[in-house]
Design a binder for these strands. Structure first.
Length: 523
RNA sequence: GGCUCGGUAGCUCAGCUGGUUAGAGCGUGGGAUUCAUAACCCCAAGGUCGGGAGUUCAAGUCUCCCCCGAGCCA
């Protein structure tokens, strides 16, 4: 089984921001989840590096475009490493092999008769890298999005005959599950129903781009080239570039995760291009929402941009991942609120989950020779916590499979809350004072330790670090998701068996697995 | 201006095809407890469900209009 998923290829106009970090973290959780369940995952991310905007940004910085792209893409790569993103590929559209892919792809599209010459006149926004086909006459029109002056262009470009795919795209877009979340579908459907128009796929006099074979002076339009990065990324290092072979190594993608603003490119233009080239279509395009900060849009002009590097340094991977995945319904817009961020991290992770293990491990060590107590009746599958754990795991699996991180996170949290309640109800610290109750105390502690193990296991895709630390405190090896993907059940699935925690196992000295977040001053 | 999505307790959100006193978590207040990371557990207050009109025996849940936010297209 093969599961390919992608983040967008981030435009290297500027350093990474929180939005791209959010997308990438979400994809990482999906990738890890799929691997744990035995899928051979190819998790793709990378950078989109061509276009006039990049050229000008580089110029302004006194760099060659290539030098600029090298610098920015290195920052992305480095940042993802520090976040421990488990991407399998990092593709740059300036990669020479990507050029070959684009050429081959274009040849196929051309052979299908889908490339025509056309004259394009109009106002162009460099920031959007798009013609604004607004007919209104104005002396100095500006882009509504970027509020920058538009530039007048009059050029002969190559066009992709999108209009030929009207019916196929209509059918595709109407398909259940192709566009997710479903609430985003109608917008695209209406757009398609309005009639698809051919779009230009080349620019003239734009040296920073991939030359169009057979059309001197033309380079490919950034979007045409960028989307193809998803294909280039699948090439093995050293493998000859041959599109056909990609069909056996990961294409079609199961999932493109993108921000809601670029849904159209992925759900309409991209599939049509693939149809033209005779390649299979991705299964799902998921458009997630945007992040605001304390109710306000983040932006340079407001000076309220949350820097992912700073966030990582000051708060750590687990905290940020938890907050973003646990509190924001994936797909909806979300608001980053610092108070809420630290409240949730401290409550959920430090107090509820971390402290649960800490208090239980302390008791077990104190009263049972520093080891996991005998399981006794707690090993039974109908123990209340066994049932709770199983239910949580089922909910978790289902939620993750449908990209509902919030529900998934909640199911784990509920399990930990239940175990805390169980401890309070049974009060082993009281029972321990009653002679003859030691056996019962051992069973209760075993049940909670075992529940903690499940919590650690379930957390693996969402919070890999915390997961390892939890398991370590239980003398368990961290979950290895890179092992044989074909094993069935996978090590993870095997570990999710009630009673697998071995009594008598020496417990390490308890250390808080999750530090409370004490943020003095705004981030 | 057009299209789409959203506007439910201080905050983040659940509320399926309309039907008893609108739910959860966080935050706040109180209680209990001591195994534990001033942690855990229990209880409580808090909402005329953006506004208005309509359909209906009955609307947060359907229809229309308006206001606010977000995205796309102009």
């Amino acid at each position: 089984m093969s599961y390919t998923l992608t983040t967008p290829l981030y435009y290297v106009n500027d350093r990474p921001h929180l939005g791209s970090t959010y997308t990438t973290l979400a994809c990482d959780a999906i990738a890890r989840f799929q691997r744990l369940n035995g899928q051979a995952v190819t998790f793709i991310t990378g950078c989109d590096e061509h276009g006039l905007k990049i050229m000008r940004t580089a110029e302004a910085a006194g760099l060659t475009p290539q030098a600029h792209c090298d610098a920015i893409s290195a920052r992305y790569r480095d940042l993802w490493q520090r976040w421990q993103i488990s991407n399998d590929r990092f593709i740059r559209t300036s990669d020479p092999r990507h050029h070959q892919v684009v050429e081959q792809f274009f040849a196929r599209v051309e052979a299908s008769g889908d490339v025509v010459e056309g004259r394009q006149q109009g106002w162009y926004c460099v920031a959007c890298e798009e013609f604004k086909d607004d007919p209104h006459e104005s002396d100095d029109p500006e882009c509504a999005i970027h509020r920058r002056p538009l530039e007048w262009r009059d050029e002969v470009n190559l066009f992709f005959r999108l209009s030929r795919y009207q019916q196929q795209i209509e059918a595709l877009v109407a398909q259940e599950g192709f566009i997710a979340p479903a609430s985003r579908r109608r917008e695209v459907q209406n757009f398609v129903a309005g009639g698809l128009k051919d779009f230009s796929i080349s620019r003239v006099d734009l040296p920073w781009g991939i030359p169009v074979p057979g059309h001197a002076g033309h380079t490919f339009y950034v979007w045409f080239d960028a989307l193809l990065g998803y294909l280039s990324a699948l090439l093995e290092p050293g493998q000859p570039v041959e599109l056909e072979s990609l069909l056996h190594q990961g294409w079609p993608a199961q999932l493109h995760v993108i921000g809601k603003d670029i849904l159209r490119f992925h759900a309409v233009f991209w599939p049509a291009m693939l149809l033209s080239a005779g390649l299979e279509l991705p299964r799902t395009v998921f458009g997630h929402g945007f992040l605001t900060r304390e109710g306000q849009k983040m932006g340079k002009s407001l000076g309220n941009v949350l820097d992912p590097e700073l966030l990582l340094e000051r708060c750590g991977r687990d905290a940020v991942r938890w907050y973003l995945l646990r509190d924001i319904p994936f797909g909806e817009d979300g608001d980053f609120q610092q108070q809420r961020f630290s409240d949730l991290v401290n409550n959920d992770l430090a107090n509820t989950i971390g402290n649960l293990l800490n208090r239980t491990s302390s008791m077990a060590r104190k009263w049972f020779d520093g080891a996991v107590p005998p399981a006794g009746a707690a090993a039974e599958a109908d123990h209340p916590l066994a049932l709770a754990a199983l239910a949580a795991a089922e909910r978790f699996q289902q939620a993750m499979a449908s990209l509902e991180f919030r529900t998934a996170a909640e199911s784990v949290l509920q399990l930990a809350i239940g175990a805390n309640g169980f401890l309070n109800d049974n009060a082993p610290w009281k029972r321990m004072k009653t002679p003859g109750d030691e056996v019962r105390v051992g069973e209760d502690l075993y049940a909670v330790l075992e529940t903690s193990r499940w919590v650690g296991l379930l957390l693996a895709p969402l919070l890999p670090d915390l997961s390892s630390r939890l398991l370590e405190q239980l003398a368990q090896a961290p979950i290895d998701s890179s092992s044989d993907p074909l094993a069935s059940p996978t090590p993870w699935q095997q570990a999710l068996r009630w009673g697998a925690l071995r009594p008598g196992l020496a417990l390490p000295e308890p250390v808080p697995v999750m530090q409370r977040l004490e943020l003095d001053g705004p981030l």
